[in-house]
Each structure stands twice: as C-alpha cells, then as structure tokens.
Design a binder for these strands. Structure first.
Lengths: 152, 152
DNA sequence: GCGATATGTAACATATCAAGTTACATGAGA
DNA sequence: TCTCATGTAACTTGATATGTTACATATCGC
C-alpha cells in the first residue's frame, strides 16, 4: 500500500525552519523538500490553525515558527495533519451481521488498537526540540568529516 | 488512505471453513464474503503455498483446511499474504542525504518499528482455534435470542 | 474419451487517495 | 499600483486494493 509521508514531510519542514529565524516562503521550503509550494501550504495549513506556525503574505512574508519546540510533540503534529489512519490494514466490514466476521474483527481490533496506542504514545514522547537537538548532533559529527548537511 | 482488508477477509474465509468439513468452492466462499471467486483464489494462494489449505480441481473439488488450527496464528496468516505493510505512514525518503531528514526518520522509525513489533506480537498470540472458539461462543449466545449467524 | 466442474492466472476495469500541478483570488509591502 | 506571497479550488498523476472477464488446465463421473 502507498504510504502517507505527510508527517515525515511536515517534520522535515519544521526542523529546517528551526535552524534559522527568518520567515520562509513556500517556494524555499518546497525546494528543500523537492516538492511543490502548494503541497507545503497544504501540509502547513493544519499547523497554522493550531498556532504552531504563522504565515504572512506579501513582501518579506512566508512561514514562521510560532511555538515552543520543547512543548510540541510529534503526536501534536500528527494531530495537526488531521490524524490520518495509522494502520494500513483494517476490517473488511465494520459492524457486520456475520458472527464469524465479528469474531475476526474483535481479535484484529484488539491488536490494531494496541499498536495504534503504542505508536501514538511513542510519538507523544518526542518533542520537536528533541529532534532539533538530534539534528545538531548529526551536523556536528558530519562536519568533522568535511561533509555537507545536504547531498544526493 | 484505503485500508487493506485482505487479512480480515482471509480470516473470515478460514473460520467459515472451520465450521464444516467438506471442501468449499471459491464460488461458495465468495458468496459468503460477498465478493468474487477470483478474489478468494488470490488471497488463498499464499495459504496454499504454506500448506495451511489445500485446493483440488474438478468435481467435488474446492478448498480444504490442511492445518492444525491451534498451531496457526494470525501472524502466520499475515505472513502467508506476503507480509504487506502494516503502517499507513512512512518516511518521505529512505537513506536521505539531508541530515534533518535523517533525524526525522530516526525518530519516526523508532516509533514505527515499536508499533509494528507490538502488532506482530499480538497477532502471534492469537490462533485460528481461539478465533473459532470465540465464534462458537458468540453463536451460542445469539442462538438464545433466536437469531441467525448471518444477517444484514 | 468427453463433458461438466473447479482451480490458476493473466489482463483489464474501477475506486480511492496521496502527491503533484495549474490557475486564480486575496492580501501585504515597497 | 506593481510585485510578492499565501489561500484554495480544480485537475492530473501514480500506486494499489478490489472487482471482473476470459481462458487455460486439471479432475471427476459418465
């Protein structure tokens, strides 16, 4: 199944923004992400509604971080995207009349909801500040080898 | 994202088969599942290769259970389907040169693999025999209310 | 052997959805 | 007012689960 990479993408954007202050245009961010400005605006829309970022039009406009990175978790970002489905699998039918299917659904639902709960919990343990810190650590160790932050 | 219901579907088929001995034609099973015989053959193909079911052609042919239901777990059935993706989300790019993306991927991968491991573990704890037992329990309690096993 | 029945499988159709693209409206600053 | 930027609708594209048709192959009963 095709996998949704919006969470990965929006985190990438946020972390890039965390490295310098200025507002970033959608086009700048899109170039860094190798995608389209409209896609950036789309995935940022939810974040703006929750107040994690701000956007301004016109000259000198663009996107700005508007939150305490140590207070926002990956789970918050996930929620800002509209909480899309976490699991690639689901039941064939919900609320089936067939008792066989009810038994199957009950077993699968148990396993599925456990996994979802764990994933959400893990995402809730990681803040954007922690990610940013990890990035800087990686940057430091790579610099010692004379390489760039970006590459093919 | 569209959710994969093959696991749910194939479990449904197997449990139906567990209720009576005879071979079942793809058409019979398809009717019970409200789908197409070809779809049944497709999802059963992997199970046959692993020896969980047998198929025979011609008169009196069809699908037969060929395993000890108490020895086959939902995880085994999942594997028989080819182990399709469990999670609906993934990284934007694997092995990125961008250090920001590396940091993002590392965090997400951790959470993702934890959730996948838990899900697989849970699926591994449930056998087809347990599901069949649960079904029979449901059947018993519904019978007391004068209802059928199937219904809209 | 022959016809009926069943699986096996390729090929094609359909539906859904993330992602990409185009077009245009709106608003802010120089 | 002109330029730059976001906001958003509409459309295109690609991937994939699912559904369907068609036909080949194997097996049973006569």
């Amino acid at each position: 199944m095709r996998r949704d990479s919006r969470l990965s993408g929006v985190l990438h954007v946020l972390l890039h923004m965390a490295q310098q202050p200025g507002p970033f245009t959608s086009e700048t961010l899109a170039k860094a992400m190798d995608t389209n400005p409209v896609v950036i605006r789309r995935i940022m829309a939810g974040l703006r509604e929750l107040g994690y970022v701000r956007s301004e039009k016109g000259h000198g406009g663009g996107w700005t971080l508007a939150c305490d990175l140590s207070k926002v978790t990956l789970r918050d970002v996930y929620a800002a995207l509209g909480s899309p489905a976490l699991l690639a699998m689901g039941n064939r039918t919900e609320a089936p009349g067939c008792l066989v299917e009810q038994a199957v659904n009950a077993a699968l639902d148990q396993a599925f909801s456990d996994a979802e709960a764990l994933l959400l919990s893990r995402l809730g343990e990681v803040t954007l500040a922690m990610l940013s810190e990890d990035f800087r650590k990686r940057l430091g160790s790579r610099k010692h080898h004379g390489m760039h932050a970006h590459g093919a």
